[in-house]
Amino acid sequence: MTIPNLITVARLLCVPALVYAMILGELQLAFGLFLAAGISDAVDGFIARHFNQRSELGTYLDPIADKLLLVSVFVMLTWLAVLPLWFLILVASRDILIVAAVLLSSLMAQPVTVKPILVSKATTAFQIGLALVVLGELAFDLNLSGVGHTLLILTSALTVLSAAAYLIDWLRHMSDD
């Protein structure tokens, strides 16, 4: 168990507290927890890269923590009627597609190596930005003049592009002999 993995586990444990804060309407706390989780993601990545603490567990645990955090926030923001249901379905469908492809590949004895692609990293960055902006607007009663809506559209487009890129890569992998 490396330091980055411990940080990632802490991020995973933060998710229920974040969801509970949102249910209670404690949106400033939720914003703070989400911001701390985002910072912890950057910190664990930095430590893993710069202090040679990469691990196979971390390769799987880190994206799981990121997805659980983001999807949980998007579920809650949809439940609060702040984000549209179609966006939640889009984000969740992409993640389900990726997991299903990995599982299917393994079942067919053609396992894929899980590694993020550039458009996927951009998608995650925009998803985090969207969640921060929307939570910030709610928590601090801000009006950022359509920034959230613009981010919603850009994030949706990147989510579709990312899903398509992963699907194309997966189809190529599955057709290789």
Rank of each mutant, 00 (worst) to 15 (best):
V91S: 04
A122P: 01
I7V: 14
L132C: 09
P111I: 01
L12Q: 11
V147P: 03
L135T: 15
I96T: 11
A10I: 15
S105I: 05
D95Y: 08
A92I: 15
R172Q: 02
D169V: 00
L29R: 13
G38P: 04
L144C: 05
A37W: 02
H50T: 11
A42W: 13
S106T: 08
I64P: 03
V43I: 15
L24M: 10
V15L: 03
D62T: 14
V147A: 14
Q53A: 10
L161Q: 09
V75F: 14
P84M: 04
L88W: 02
L77C: 09
Q127I: 07
T124A: 10
S156I: 10
L18T: 12
C14W: 07
K121V: 05
V112E: 12
N5V: 02
V9H: 03
L68I: 15
E26G: 13
W86N: 08
I98T: 11
S40R: 03
E56Y: 01
L77W: 06
L171V: 10
G148A: 13
Y60H: 09
L154H: 09
G45M: 01
A165L: 00
Y60L: 07
R11V: 11
I89K: 07
L69R: 06
V71Y: 05
S175W: 01
L68E: 05
T2Y: 01
L138K: 15
W79G: 00
R11Y: 10
L57T: 14
I89F: 10
F31G: 02
V75C: 15
L171Y: 10
V99Y: 05
G146E: 11
E26N: 15
M1H: 14
P16E: 00
V119A: 00
I98W: 01
L13D: 14
V91C: 05
L70P: 05
V114S: 00
H50F: 04
I168F: 10
F31S: 06
A36N: 07
G148M: 01
A30T: 12
A163H: 08
D44G: 03
L154F: 10
V91I: 13
A42R: 08
L171P: 00
F74V: 14
H149E: 13
L70E: 10
F74T: 14
I47W: 02
L13W: 11
K115C: 09
L69T: 14
M1R: 13
L35K: 05
V43M: 06
T123L: 01
P63Q: 00
S55C: 04
K115D: 12
A37D: 09
Y166P: 04
I117G: 00
L130M: 11
L35C: 08
N52E: 15
L135D: 11
D44H: 02
L158N: 10
A165Y: 05
L27E: 13
T155W: 03
F51E: 04
L27R: 14
I96E: 04
L158K: 06
R172S: 00
I39S: 04
V134I: 11
T124S: 06
V160F: 06
A139V: 09
S72K: 13
D66V: 00
A164R: 06
D176K: 12
L70Y: 12
I39Q: 06
I128E: 04
A163R: 05
T113M: 04
I39W: 03
T123E: 07
S120D: 06
M1S: 13
L107V: 01
T113R: 08
F87V: 13
L135Q: 13
L151N: 15
L13Y: 13
L167A: 15
P4Q: 06
T8P: 01
Q127A: 12
V73D: 04
G38S: 08
P16F: 00
